Amino acid sequence: MITRRGFLRLIGGSFLSMLSLGAYAVGIEPMLLTHVKRYSLTPPHWPAGLKLRVVALADIHACRPWMTPERIASLAAEANALQPDLIVLLGDYIAGMRLVTDQVTESEWASALSGLMAPLGVLSILGNHDWWHDHAAQRAGAGPTVARGALEGVGITVQENDAIRLEKDGHGFWVAGLADQLALRPGVEWGRTGFKGLDDLDGTLAKVSDSAPVILLAHEPDIFPKVPSRVSLTLSGHTHGGQVRLFGYSPVVPSRFGNRYAYGHVVEQDRNLIISGGLGFSIMPVRFGMRPEILQIDLG
């Protein structure tokens, strides 16, 4: 039978353990050296002679003290060191929470990202927070957003329902980017009762004018059930892997599909989706079991 002293020791030990775990999740894991998550796959119908390395960064959420311009610049250098053929940015550059010591302006984070370099270029899409925190765009119900202007100002192409054809070693392929699926948020001030997406999957893929493979960039992975097998690979962010992930399970996932599209490589009906765990965080500055990561994807 446990004594009173033993019970108090148990309670005290449990409290200290919880305090230590909380300190780790807030102060240590979010600031750990970035993990490079590597995937190697040959999607269906991928040309035999096309070997392509794509490096992806997602959900930067620039803010102080967590994601400063200096840290973003170091992430760009890490991405370059992976020797990618192509770099893609999967949206959410703007901070997604109020628990910060200071904001990082659009010009600051865009300047830090301007150091990204790859032979086939740097392509980007926008995320929900890049829209939600742009009040002029919310009032108008349309862009261009400040985030788009910041990226284009440093020479980074932004794809919103657009597709571009690239070529490597004599083989062509397409990169298609969707506008955000949650771009316009509800609010009395702009007369909307629900979220409205600006994505146009059919219209975007209609711009693909030949049979070359397609890589689709979609900030939220929830579009995936609608993506046709014509698309070789879909890349998404948004979920942050739930920010807390234990034994392959995330208790909270910002997706209507829950853990189905929380994180990692998903194959459904011979179609491939990779969801990044991202780099920053939103709502709360907590990461546990989900280190900040850069994706390295080797295709072919």
Rank of each mutant, 00 (worst) to 15 (best):
244 V>R: 03
260 R>T: 15
161 N>R: 02
64 R>T: 14
44 P>I: 08
75 L>D: 08
187 G>F: 00
242 G>M: 02
299 L>H: 01
169 D>Q: 14
158 V>Y: 00
29 E>T: 07
10 L>F: 14
16 L>N: 04
273 L>P: 00
134 D>R: 03
144 P>F: 02
175 V>S: 05
157 T>D: 09
181 Q>S: 15
84 P>N: 07
143 G>V: 01
127 G>S: 12
213 P>F: 06
129 H>Y: 06
175 V>A: 01
299 L>S: 05
13 G>C: 06
104 V>E: 05
189 E>M: 12
134 D>M: 09
96 G>C: 08
19 L>N: 09
4 R>K: 13
232 S>K: 00
182 L>F: 14
18 M>D: 07
204 T>W: 03
29 E>H: 10
59 D>G: 04
84 P>M: 09
79 A>V: 09
285 P>Y: 00
240 H>I: 03
156 I>V: 04
134 D>I: 09
283 I>G: 02
287 R>H: 07
77 A>Y: 06
210 D>S: 14
294 I>T: 03
92 D>G: 12
249 Y>C: 09
83 Q>V: 12
144 P>R: 01
158 V>I: 06
184 L>R: 00
178 L>H: 04
115 G>W: 07
149 G>L: 05
167 E>C: 13
128 N>Y: 01
84 P>G: 10
74 S>P: 05
60 I>T: 07
250 S>C: 11
108 E>M: 03
75 L>Y: 11
246 L>D: 09
222 D>F: 02
35 H>I: 06
277 G>Q: 04
114 S>I: 12
171 H>N: 14
248 G>Y: 01
204 T>Y: 06
143 G>F: 00
257 F>M: 11
125 I>A: 07
190 W>V: 03
141 G>P: 03
156 I>Y: 00
141 G>H: 00
281 F>R: 07
15 F>Q: 06
41 L>W: 05
58 A>V: 04
15 F>R: 07
72 I>F: 05
177 G>A: 10
220 E>F: 07
119 P>C: 10
127 G>K: 03
292 P>W: 03
207 K>E: 14
14 S>W: 10
136 A>C: 09
47 P>F: 04
74 S>I: 07
64 R>D: 08
292 P>H: 02
121 G>Y: 04
10 L>R: 13
206 A>Y: 06
106 E>N: 13
82 L>C: 06
73 A>R: 13
110 A>T: 00
84 P>I: 06
70 E>L: 13
159 Q>K: 13
106 E>T: 08
111 S>A: 14
104 V>I: 08
21 L>Q: 08
168 K>W: 09
23 A>Q: 10
132 W>L: 12
148 R>E: 11
166 L>D: 12
300 G>A: 10
138 Q>P: 09
90 L>W: 01
100 V>N: 09
54 V>Y: 02
148 R>Q: 15
4 R>S: 13
234 T>P: 01
59 D>Y: 04
259 N>E: 11
136 A>G: 13
38 R>P: 07
132 W>A: 15
215 I>G: 03
262 A>Q: 08
178 L>C: 01
292 P>I: 01
76 A>K: 03
160 E>H: 02
234 T>N: 01
114 S>H: 11
